[in-house]
Amino acid sequence: MAEYSAEQIAAHFRGLILSGRMGAGDRLPTVRQTARDLGVAVTTAAKAYRALESSGFVVTKGAAGTRVAAQPSVLPGVVLGHVRDAVAEAQKSGISESDLLNAVQAVWRDRP
């Protein structure tokens, strides 16, 4: 089992925010919970949160915890809609997550 790196953790939350699964003002899990869930050191999770904060995705306000920033750079609604449609269609057809991601990457690479 490969251990999560701070970059991977930050990418995970960035994905949740960009895909609209976490909206502005939504609370992120605590650093401790993230570390415990992923089986990594608290410092690794904290590093990921700092990276998210410095890139403007989240804000940390003491006791209020870490929340999604009011206006993080999100995917345009049209793109997000297509992504959702593709996921729904893939699930309906029994296509796995990894197969879909591979297809997206292949299409991305094929574009000039």
Binding site: M1, M22, R27, P29, T30, Q33, D37, G39
Partner: peptide, 13 residues
Amino acid sequence: RQPAEPVAPTHPR
């Protein structure tokens, strides 16, 4: 127990 396959959290518990 250490998770067999870690599950990234999506919301606070």
